[in-house]
Design a binder for these strands. Structure first.
Lengths: 341, 341
DNA sequence: GGCACATCGGGAAGGGCTTCACATTACGAC
DNA sequence: GTCGTAATGTGAAGCCCTTCCCGATGTGCC
């Protein structure tokens, strides 16, 4: 197969001009049926595929949307991606999914890549707590939507879940079960989600007349299973060990669970655990995990829709109003938080 | 920020020709230091980002590699992607990861997308058992490497894991533990992996003097947790229930495990389970899963390397020999297969 | 039969970049 | 002083496509 079948080759083969071939592809109704058929058959015969780069160069923008997530190893983000993909596809766009791996450097690299690609817009779960990457990116004039994080200031659209409410759900549940000393395995302190969930947790404690002293925070470097195991080990070393632990996400919770299992600590009897995200594997865990469910697919889809709305506007519709959508989480109770008695 | 700062604007601002700006970016050593600095500062000042599409149009090919996996919800493929990304990045390429969701139609769409993008090459885990998509794609002359599947014929490179050996490992382990009647939750019959793992299973049975009747196959539509739950339900309905089950991947195994748990069947005492892939969540399952580990990251990285080797050759090195790399799996024994006594 | 009007298709102009052949300059050597 | 050479920079061609303006052809109607 010839490496380079161009529109010219097709035109020659079909005995028409290149303009006509282009019309057949892009506005078939402007071409007479007979001509169209002839051109189409030439296209098929030669195996012509139009060059997206040329197309894009002409159009000035691409048909791809960038999605930069914190961790593709976390099924939560896989779901976000799924939702975004679906919405983008409905609009005829593709999604380029990239993984910053919770690392500001990689985030910057991928954002630069997106800029070079003249991506239509970007969905972003920020990894860089300083916000410097975003600041730099803003200069390019490429619209973006924050995912799983509320936009601060009024600058951009965002779709997030009410993390304060989520944290409160989790801890209220534990308090109701009688726990009075709770650990919070929290993740990197820079993340808003982490902070907001703590705020919610403290609120729930306050409701019950408990002070912030009832919450012992165990920060971690990363939001993954290994970090959870590590936090679990630290938890075991605490004097006056809490009777319950709330984890900033399910991966951490699974890690904690593994550490408890290895140490012979019985969950939930000796330690109750509540996770966050309700990933599919939470239900299949050694002890099925109680978790705060987030509508991940919806979040991805809504973010993509907001972005689409914003980019359409650029084609001269009514002005797009930046919006901050906040969804509500939901508590899913399973065995890990049900003290047996 | 002006939407469109082009190389011309930079040239004007720096008082040089466009050619020189291009040289500053692509071959800085051919430009005098003073000029280079002036151009660079103009670039920074204007926030110029080169257009990848124009660059690519000129170059005739892109700097992106496509990766099309069966299921991004399966952590196994997330690892494959990780490996591929790392290897590609080392070569200065980006990876566009797409998810065929085990669906031939979506696979075809994404392959078409890759062709339009003039992607450098494609790493592919085929979803279309008929091979028709591949056949069509081959016409474009874009090199590709099959991942997790042996190339049939001598047509392409492939990287896979010896599935026959893996199936044998799993079932030999079960036979050694005394099981004489084993179920195989297998997945869609079109998949080679599924077939090869069965072959291995039968081999292991034969070694032990058991006939194929000792293996009861339960096919499923998909390779995911829901399908596993479904297969588990069917398993429970079988007269003369097998005492062990071997699953074609860990997601199925987790599903089976959930079904058993729901039905009060004790794993491993009433039913031993062995999965495949050894995803991270296998170890954290309700009953930690025995599984056949595959070197997923390595597989992704090797596939990317093979592809790079092949595309480099196109620039006129020694001819690239298509190769089929076959890696070895490894059994990881955990509680789900250890009959308690 | 001739005219107005659709309808089609042709041709050329970019769009932003790289690259290549060539112009310019400086400098050391003879 | 002249020439060769190396070091720099210039400018235009061309990658492949879309789009827009027109000319050409055909149609229906008076």
């Amino acid at each position: 197969m010839a490496q380079s079948v161009g529109i010219k080759d097709v035109a020659r083969a079909a005995g028409v001009s290149v303009g006509t071939v282009s019309n057949v592809i892009n506005r078939p109704d402007t071409v007479a049926g007979e001509t169209r058929a002839r051109v189409q058959s030439a296209i098929d015969r030669l195996g012509y595929v139009r060059s997206e780069s040329a197309r894009q160069l002409r159009a000035g923008r691409s048909r791809i949307m960038g999605l930069l997530v914190l961790d593709m190893g976390n099924p939560f983000f896989v779901d976000v991606a799924r939702g975004a993909e679906r919405a983008a596809r409905d609009a005829g766009l593709g999604v380029m999914v990239c993984n910053s791996a919770q690392n500001a450097g990689e985030e910057a690299e991928y954002l630069a890549l997106f800029a070079e690609q003249r991506v239509r817009g970007v969905l972003l779960t920020p990894a860089d707590a300083t916000g410097r990457n975003i600041e730099t990116f803003r200069r390019h004039g490429i619209p973006f939507v924050l995912v799983d994080r509320v936009a601060e200031g009024t600058t951009e659209c965002s779709v997030s879940v009410d993390d304060v409410a989520g944290g409160a759900l989790a801890v209220r549940h534990l308090v109701d079960a009688g726990h009075r000393s709770i650990a919070y395995v929290s993740g990197p302190p820079g993340f808003n989600q982490v902070r907001d969930r703590r705020t919610g947790a403290l609120n729930a404690l306050a409701e019950a007349g408990l002070g912030p002293g009832a919450l012992r925070e165990l920060p971690t470097e990363r939001l993954d299973v290994a970090a959870g195991r590590d936090a679990g080990a630290r938890l075991l070393g605490l004097a006056d060990r809490p009777t319950a632990v709330f984890c900033a996400n399910d991966l951490l919770a699974l890690g904690v669970l593994q550490a408890m299992y290895a140490a012979g600590v019985v969950v939930p009897d000796d330690l109750a655990i509540v996770g966050y995200d309700d990933i599919e594997f939470a239900a299949a865990a050694a002890v099925p995990l109680t978790s705060v469910r987030q509508p991940a697919i919806t979040m991805g889809a809504m973010a993509a829709d907001l972005l689409l709305e914003e980019t359409e506007e650029r084609e001269g519709q009514a002005a797009h109003q930046h919006r901050r959508v906040v969804l509500q989480p939901e508590l899913v109770v399973r065995r890990s938080s049900l003290t047996a008695r």
